[in-house]
Every structure is written in structure tokens, then in C-alpha cells.
């Protein structure tokens, strides 16, 4: 193993050389080696060669992994848990998450109010209901003060409504004598209904802010 040129020198000399290179030699060993190579050209050459070898090793160029290395690794990983993926996605898309949440809640509430029981609201006045034709009638000569909302029924106005009229999922019929001072609106589809609810929400929000400001 040890170089033939060092045969006539103390057997441990080459071991000391390596320990010196590894910064693992005692002061005494170092002194021994440096004194020895002053006089022994073979050992001096051997030590020089080892130092050269080491400097070659240390000057190896730093290497870079090939392009696309990371993505190739990622493609081979086992499937990640779904929950982690969803959580991270929500974190990185807060606006979309908020929008989806909003839509889900809106759809829920709109749908439930769309399918909830038939209702009829008017602040004052007498209304008649014709069961056979499923029609709410504002009798002739009758005056409704305020808005009138009819849901899942038809509406026939023979009298007068002093306010807005809203007919949801039904038809409205105005007799020639009937009179409505506000707007008449008919909502027939869930999309219209959603739109109406949204409009109401925005108006309410607007009211809320104006109320706040006026305080």
C-alpha cells in the first residue's frame, strides 16, 4: 500500500502525513514529519504529491443539479393528503375563497327563501283570497297603504296600492280601475329572485351605512 519510495523511512511516516493533512496530528508528530522531510527527499516528494492530490480534490468545480430536477422529484412523490391541498389553496387564494363562501351562503339562503311557504305581506288594508284561482285580490275601492308582496300566488288589483308591488312566482293582473303608485315587479325565476335578494342586500347595506353616517 505505502509507496515503495518510502520503504527505508520510519513506517509510520506516511500515516503521520495523512494525519497532518486531516489536521489530526499532534505537535510532536508534526515536528517529526517536518524534520524528516528536510533530510529525506523521497518522503518530501511523497508529502508534496499528497498535498497536490488534496488541492486537486478541493478545487473540484461545484456542481449544479440538472434543470427541472425539483419538478421531476415532485412528480414522483406519492399523492399528498387532500386536506393539505385544500388548506394551502385557500390560503393562497383568499379572495376566491371568500367569493365561493359568499356564493354558497347566498345560494343557501336564497334557495330556502324561494321555497319557503307562501306568504303575503301588506302593511294595512283588507285583501281577499280566491282559493280556486290561487289569487289574492285587492278589492275595488280598497286602498293598501304601503308595499305589497305576494309570493307563490297570483295577484289581481282592483283597488289601489299606495306603494310598490312585488309578485314572486305568480302573475299579477291589474284591473282597469286598479291603481299602483309605486313600481310593479314580477319575479318568476330563481335567478331573478337571487338578483332581487342581492339588490335588497346592497340597498340594506347602503341604508346601514347612511344610517351610520347620519348618527
Amino acid at each position: 500500500m505505502k509507496g515503495g519510495e518510502a520503504m527505508k523511512c520510519p513506517a509510520e511516516m506516511i500515516g503521520i502525513m495523512h494525519d497532518v493533512l486531516d489536521e489530526d496530528a499532534t505537535k510532536e508528530q508534526k515536528r517529526l514529519l517536518f524534520e524528516h522531510i528536510q533530510t529525506c527527499s523521497d518522503c518530501k516528494q511523497h508529502y508534496e504529491e499528497l498535498k497536490k492530490t488534496e488541492s486537486f480534490l478541493l478545487s473540484s468545480p461545484s456542481m449544479e443539479a440538472p434543470d427541472g430536477f425539483t419538478s421531476k422529484v415532485m412528480k414522483q412523490l406519492p399523492q399528498e393528503k387532500r386536506t393539505v391541498w385544500i388548506k394551502r389553496w385557500m390560503k393562497s387564494h383568499p379572495l376566491v375563497t371568500a367569493a365561493i363562501l359568499f356564493l354558497a351562503l347566498m345560494t343557501g339562503s336564497v334557495y330556502s327563501s324561494w321555497t319557503s311557504e307562501d306568504q303575503l305581506s301588506a302593511l294595512s288594508g283588507n285583501l281577499r283570497f280566491d282559493q280556486e284561482t290561487n289569487t289574492v285580490i285587492v278589492p275595488e275601492g280598497e286602498v293598501i297603504e304601503g308595499d305589497l308582496t305576494v309570493k307563490n300566488r297570483n295577484l289581481e288589483i282592483e283597488g289601489e296600492v299606495k306603494g310598490d308591488v312585488l309578485v314572486i312566482n305568480g302573475e299579477q293582473y291589474m284591473a282597469s280601475a286598479g291603481q299602483v303608485t309605486g313600481e310593479i315587479e314580477e319575479v318568476d325565476h330563481i335567478l331573478d329572485w337571487t338578483w332581487y335578494e342581492l339588490k335588497k342586500l346592497v340597498y340594506n347595506l347602503g341604508d346601514f351605512f347612511t344610517n351610520e353616517e347620519s348618527k
Binding site: S62, E64, T70, V73, M74, L77, E80, V84
Partner: peptide
């Protein structure tokens, strides 16, 4: 350890050159 792939991607980026070398 919680199963986050992207976090592992950061580790790969940190060590890929040395492991490849």
C-alpha cells in the same frame, strides 16, 4: 410531515446541488 408537498419542494431546492454532486 403533515403531508405538504410544496414544503418538500423547498427542501429539494436547498439540497439538490449537493446531493447531485
Amino acid at each position: 410531515r403533515k403531508g405538504d408537498h410544496n414544503a418538500f419542494g423547498e427542501l429539494v431546492e436547498l439540497y439538490k446541488d449537493r446531493v447531485f454532486a
